[in-house]
Design a protein around this nucleic acid. Structure first.
Lengths: 201, 201
DNA sequence: ATTAAAGCATACTGAACAGTCGGTTTGTTC
DNA sequence: GAACAAACCGACTGTTCAGTATGCTTTAAT
């Protein structure tokens, strides 16, 4: 399956791994090419041998990650089950990722504004496909099957994704330890609400 | 009540208004001092007569806005009522703000990373006091009075705030027109959940 | 009217940084 | 081991900014 990497591929991988760490800590503008070069024991010249620009490097990094996530998450919801089960499996898949991979998906929200329209729309559609549209699928099924109340699918999906991100950010800010439990609570909140007696509407 | 503004105060107000508009469109790093100066018909030199640095200017802007919001929102939840009524009044107050004031609260999330620890913690506590802690108060009361299920107050509040912000961002991205209605749906979701039959737990 | 300070403009400095370019090393092929 | 290309180095360039130095102009108070 894995033939030995060429020198170039190995270097590119090294560059991407190094920049991943840096971009997780600081934002796009604050990470300099020289810092990336230093982090992977290369020089700026070497970087520009493999990538045409800082922007291309960043986009490549995001692209790799989001397409991987897209495949992973697609699988997670492909198995049969109730809406809730499928969403639980989705978040479980998310939680099983190594922490840095887990966080990567938040970069796009943070840095989206620094790019011009072309790259921006590309990023948005990549992100859209990686998680929100996956969630939308499940939610749409849930409404169709009568498991969920009729509602604006897109809005509901956004709220669900936002919930997951709240947990992620809280975790990143070290304000949260037990991610698993908290995410379970959040799912319960999403499905049954915060009110004590759900006096049916 | 209002004695006539001094020249300086008037200029400062003009600077703040102008920079507010710019910071709403681009982020901290992308707005230059010269752009701000141009926007308020002044020069860089004049700006530095009134503010010691770009950072101080920005912090001043945020500070003004967040303390105003804090007072406004405190009032909104001070009137008696159920948890839901008070939160509805809170979001209503939010919606009644002019659009730019409404959006201002999102700046902090976007730009927080560019500042060093000192300013960062100041910003965080300002933000915390302006909205999240207000929401926390209401939620804590709601749980105490048995209107809400027992839960992690802080987490629940974050989720609530996140919901409001989802609507705000969608609106900012022009993906949403009828903010009022959508926010009502979101409140309903928060209290009673997305599931069709809330089979009591 | 005089004067001192407040308000403001112009031109400049210095640092940071993305991107470039000529040249050197390393590895591969014949 | 010659020849060639891919990988890499490091010094340089051009630009963009925040911040400064210096002095002119308006304001207001005596």
């Amino acid at each position: 399956m894995h033939q030995p990497l060429t020198k170039s591929q190995a270097t590119i991988a090294k560059i991407l791994t190094a920049s991943e760490g840096l971009f997780l800590e600081r934002n796009y503008a604050e990470v300099t090419i020289d810092q990336i070069a230093q982090a992977c024991q290369l020089t700026k010249g070497a970087l520009y041998h493999h990538f045409a620009s800082k922007e291309e490097l960043y986009l490549h990094l995001i692209h790799e990650d989001l397409t991987a996530k897209r495949n992973l998450f697609s699988q997670a919801i492909s198995l049969p089950g109730t809406c809730r089960e499928r969403l639980e499996r989705l978040t479980r898949t998310f939680l099983d990722l190594p922490p840095n991979k887990r966080q990567l998906i938040t970069l796009i929200r943070r840095d989206i504004n620094v790019f011009k329209t072309a790259s921006r729309t590309r990023l948005i559609s990549l992100y859209q496909l990686s998680l929100p549209s996956i969630v939308e699928t499940v939610i749409r099924d849930g409404i169709r099957d009568g498991e969920l109340k009729p509602a604006d699918v897109r809005l509901l999906s956004w709220h669900f994704v936002a919930m997951v991100e709240v947990i992620l950010n809280a975790y990143a800010d070290k304000m949260l330890v037990d991610v698993q439990t908290k995410l379970d609570h959040s799912l319960e909140l999403f499905f049954h609400g915060a009110a004590r007696r759900s006096t049916k509407r």
